[in-house]
Design a protein around this nucleic acid. Sequence first.
DNA 1: TATGAATGAGTGTTCATTCAT
DNA 2: TATGAATGAACACTCATTCAT
Lengths: 203, 203, 203, 203
Amino acid sequence: MTRPPTASPLKPRKTPRQPRAEKTVAALLEAAALVLERDGLEGFNTNAVARRAGVSIGSLYQYFPGKDALTLALIHREGERFHAEAASAVGEPTGTLALKAFVGACVRQQLQRPTLARLLDVEESRPAIRAEAGGAKALSAMLLEILARGDLPPQPRPALAAADLMAMVRGLTDAAGERGEADVADLARRVEAAVFGYLRGAA
Amino acid sequence: MTRPPTASPLKPRKTPRQPRAEKTVAALLEAAALVLERDGLEGFNTNAVARRAGVSIGSLYQYFPGKDALTLALIHREGERFHAEAASAVGEPTGTLALKAFVGACVRQQLQRPTLARLLDVEESRPAIRAEAGGAKALSAMLLEILARGDLPPQPRPALAAADLMAMVRGLTDAAGERGEADVADLARRVEAAVFGYLRGAA
Amino acid sequence: MTRPPTASPLKPRKTPRQPRAEKTVAALLEAAALVLERDGLEGFNTNAVARRAGVSIGSLYQYFPGKDALTLALIHREGERFHAEAASAVGEPTGTLALKAFVGACVRQQLQRPTLARLLDVEESRPAIRAEAGGAKALSAMLLEILARGDLPPQPRPALAAADLMAMVRGLTDAAGERGEADVADLARRVEAAVFGYLRGAA
Amino acid sequence: MTRPPTASPLKPRKTPRQPRAEKTVAALLEAAALVLERDGLEGFNTNAVARRAGVSIGSLYQYFPGKDALTLALIHREGERFHAEAASAVGEPTGTLALKAFVGACVRQQLQRPTLARLLDVEESRPAIRAEAGGAKALSAMLLEILARGDLPPQPRPALAAADLMAMVRGLTDAAGERGEADVADLARRVEAAVFGYLRGAA
DNA sequence: TATGAATGAGTGTTCATTCAT
DNA sequence: TATGAATGAACACTCATTCAT
């Protein structure tokens, strides 16, 4: 049967309170990541994920109401470390430093598990998931805050600038990851060039 | 029965000789574009394409050996106008002008049918198709030629710069199209800012 | 989408652990036999088999990776009783008795379910299946062992003789089954005539 | 559409009187033979045959009302030389000589184009075709005539003996052809051993 | 609660056959 | 008459999801 829409089909079904359950959920998420990395979107299916997690398909559906919920949870898991780092970037003393820290966080995040990050970007662009995945919005908000700093070139349309920067950074890092680049510092420098160049040019 | 895949499963199967056939192929390609735009990658299946083209599923397979071949043909069709325009950009008198023309071509291409362009970008990134779709390579080659012009900041690693620029432009235009932007000139200006900013910054 | 064929596309996919599953597999095999008998090779398709087994098509593919694997499993099932009987023939005290027992096993096997046996012979000759179905080889090996007995006319080329005998027996029993013969003893006598006649004549 | 049964769907549609038509029919038959030999039953389809014949699929259907009619015509073509040779065997002075000549004809026929002969045997066993293909009956009749000769061991059930002999010969020659045997005389000798052995043994 | 057997709508693809040109 | 474009029923196979145990 194909997706009879349940109430809120993308939120995890139950917050696991028992440690055993927590372990199962973690195993499922890591298995999902591994399947994506090894077999790509083509091989990413619930049965494969359950199998790799060493868990029955029934258990998967105990914790996730559907495949998209699993994907979304993985997106959140991957975004967590990154979001914290990005958030701390906002606290840097100057806009320039904050922006550099922000870019660094993006680049590090992407090069950690490049294939996974790229595929999750693709998944995140699917309407069914984008609706629910507020990650990009939060990032843009941080950027917006950074762009307001006095030492950075003022932008006539800050929201648009933030969106553009996010898009540029994502394009650059996705491509770099796909090419197999691993030098975080080198990539960060090039991304900074693009970002600061854009800000100066649009001023 | 599932047969072993024939020689080259991505090249068109039969060149239409009669005008009726040519019409069928054109209808199929346009139908593929429409299905992608209306129903996304999720709804993009051969039966739907044939139905929208007003053609039997058998006819689709007369001209395309498989779904991927259809996708690839659509990628080529969409790239044709654009490639010509991009190629003519190389002929501009200065590097600056050439780069601006190139960016303009990219932006125009993307905003023409933004949803379609974005989804084809995603498809093009699938390994099965990327192998056969030399589009990106040709574009990078043009960019490389443009970057060699004397009036542009010299790049220490030109091939990498070209790849970065392609990635940035793609990221910016994809996102803009997704947001529904329609003002070509405005987007072009922002992309130029990013592009020239990157070139200056990396020098 | 058509995936690249998995590792070993002819081995059963999953060994049924629960008794319910075992029942399903048995039902599928018997359904395959019935479909073959009633509708011939023309009507032998996975959907028909699943339907007659009273099982969903998905269940069929839980246990068999493809149609050929199902056919092969049926070949093995049909060959099992027969192989045991043939193997026990080798233990007879004299070559003559062993050969007669062997022929008897062949004839009994064939006349049990003549249509099924004949169609499985045809299927077994298909290259895709012959590679995996070692049945004929095992039979030939037994025959070879029997032919070495002292009381039988010595053969200059024993392997060839074994192959010839297998072919003769198969030809005779297939045709008899096709004609609807049911008298095992009568057919066995004629087959023996051919077999012993060949052995004497080639000596 | 699948086979709306026409009047007599297996007889050639029109007897070609013009030499051009005769050539087309011959080309189609030889193409059918080649396709069978190269691609087996799996690759034997009307479009492939027409293509290899250098003829349009429409033309194929001008001369043959369907695929089975084409197969049947090929069976007849292949049987023609053979039938003549077998018929002349009946004229030999003694039964022994006649039978040897008959066996020789069978063996020569089979080893000429072994793959083709084997696949046509399989096709001939399909009910749809067997009904129409009287080849085997004619052969059996000749054999029956030969078996009545005084110098051969008298058979209690001559029709059954003839059928058995046909089946044995077919089994032996099919298998030999499949193994790639090419030595006509050697195979003939073994077949004779089987045939005469059977006749003696059943007497 | 966990399992894994079962489901079946859906998708890609083939090929015998028809018929307008 | 010959062509080849078009047809569509049929088939192999997948995978998200359910539910009895």
